[in-house]
Computed example of a mutant assay.
Amino acid sequence: MPMDPLVSRARALWQELAAEPGAAFGTPGRPAVLVAPGSALAPPSWVGVVTVGDGALITAPTDRAANSVRSGLTGLTGLTAAALTDPDTVARLLPVADTLGPALLGYLAPDALRPVGRTAAPTTCLSPEHASLRALLAEAGPSDAGESGLADVTSPVFVVRDGTEVLAAAGYEHWTRGTAHLCVLTAPAGRGRGLARQVAHAATAHALAAGLLPQWRARPPASRRVARALGYREVGRQLSVRPV
């Protein structure tokens, strides 16, 4: 049976981000484990675990870390992709100092973007360097701002404003393999009004028009709900592990 096109494109992306020639996905019970110090699957010196569809790819910063992962995570009957990216499960199987995630990985097919319907305020466009976006990042606070990734966008930023104040903003960061990594942030005063969906729709449509693959990486349930409402399909998971 042919592979789902979204799964195929997502795997190609993460194989390239592994930064190791010949990177390929294995099965959850026998994941591919690579020594890749330059991997973008996780922060530097961390182990990165990515599952897409029924495949799993793991990168480790050192031979020692890779051997530990192979010893603890390979050859386990019944280990699922969800379990492989579950912090509690991984902590039982490996010596772990800390974890980040898991984050869900969603992707959108070119014809799958769903409409947002009527909106109460127009969507306009700003440059990523606009001062009102810096004000939004400051208002949201370092945790929400960092989670959003909005400070790293390389596309135009689509916003809903109340006067000069930005209530919600979305853009994307250009990743390799023609991928548009979506970044969305809503001000505390603008939440619960559908504004995240409105601006994310505009940013996603812009990415699709440019022939890019929209990617939505989310941990908070609210972010996942917005992605699903727009038509993104969750096909993968990402977990970062800091080895002992």
Rank of each mutant, 00 (worst) to 15 (best):
M3P: 00
D4N: 15
S8F: 09
A10S: 14
W14T: 00
A18D: 07
A19E: 12
G22W: 04
P28Q: 06
G29F: 02
R30D: 15
P31T: 07
G38S: 12
S39L: 03
P44K: 14
D86H: 03
P87N: 06
L93F: 05
L94D: 09
V96A: 11
A97M: 04
G101W: 05
G101C: 06
L105N: 11
G106K: 10
L108D: 05
A109G: 14
A109F: 03
D111S: 14
D111A: 14
P115T: 10
V116L: 02
A120V: 06
A121V: 11
T123Y: 01
S127D: 14
E129T: 13
A135R: 15
G141V: 08
G141Q: 10
A145W: 10
E147F: 03
V160Q: 14
L167T: 02
W175I: 00
T176F: 01
R177L: 09
R177V: 11
L182K: 06
V184Q: 05
V184R: 03
T186K: 06
R191L: 08
L195E: 06
Q198S: 11
Q198C: 13
A200K: 08
H206C: 12
Q215T: 00
R217C: 11
R217M: 07
A222S: 15
R224E: 13
R224Q: 13
A229L: 01
G231M: 08
G236N: 10
G236H: 08
S240C: 14
R242E: 13
R242V: 02
